[in-house]
Amino acid sequence: MKESHPDTTLLVQARAAAIGLDLSACCLPGVVTNTDLLSQYADLLNHHVFSDECEPAFEYVP
């Protein structure tokens, strides 16, 4: 796992504030680590080019 970007802590605090979440100090390191992990996965998605017609899979279509 890559090291936490120092800005991730600020990012997490900003995201928490945006949804009215008061993050306690004891949660912060773990949430930052998990946010970094999720960011790595999100990076993979950013490389995929979607057609405008590719809709989110809100409904299951077998």
Partner: peptide
């Protein structure tokens, strides 16, 4: 908790 909180954001 920490996984869920990161996901919620």
């Amino acid at each position: 908790r920490d996984r869920l909180l990161a996901g919620a954001m």
